[in-house]
Write a protein that binds this DNA or RNA. Structure first.
Lengths: 102, 102
DNA sequence: ATAGTATATCAATATAATTAGATATAGTTA
DNA sequence: TAACTATATCTAATTATATTGATATACTAT
């Protein structure tokens, strides 16, 4: 299959992939994603897991939320974070396609 | 298969993946990679393709080289860049594993 | 209402990455 | 050797991102 990395639509896709990768490329955020693989977690669990200040973790979660890599739902006082699998695997597929030889 | 994102060896791997992703996450470098999918190219072709100053392109190529995402070989005056497929697909596989649900 | 708990946001700072301009190196050709 | 071409490096400037401390919001329980 051919892919023209110069066409207008491809450039849009490239920029989307770039944003996704930037969000995922941070080591703390990678750890968060990895931590969420098994099950959803509230912020306080993630804070404890990473051993980082709450506001910093909240910032990183915000980045992941912005890119729709994670989803949230409220549970009383807590906010539960989980992986947004569909979006992740869609983007990973495109990445695989994009950077592997034809 | 289980993966403990906290073990010493996993943390090393995480940091490797993070470096790889940071290198790939830049839009210009994504374009370079995409441009190299079909065939190897010399720097001047990449410069023309990206329409960016030569020194900037050289910098981005240096980043990709540092992460062993591309390889080079000399061809007279020119330096030919090509994708380092083995390393790319190895890291992509690990990434897939790392951020997909168990 | 008040106090307490969980999470998010804001402002400031520190750190890192991208970019540009100038220059250096290395090979080639005359 | 001198001029030329292709690429890389150095330094400085700009921009983006991560981090910290303080504070705000939103919900819960008393």
């Amino acid at each position: 299959m051919s892919y023209d990395c110069c066409s207008r639509s491809s450039l849009r896709e490239l920029s989307q992939v770039s944003l996704f990768l930037k969000a995922v490329a941070d080591e703390n955020r990678l750890k968060i994603i990895c931590f969420l693989r098994k099950q959803e977690r509230c912020v306080c669990e993630i804070v404890e897991f990473l051993n980082l200040p709450q506001n910093l973790v909240s910032h990183h979660l915000g980045v992941l939320r912005e890119r729709e890599i994670v989803s949230t739902k409220k549970d009383g006082l807590k906010v539960l974070y989980s992986l947004n699998d569909k979006n992740i695997s869609k983007t990973l597929k495109f990445l695989n396609f994009l950077i592997s030889k034809l």
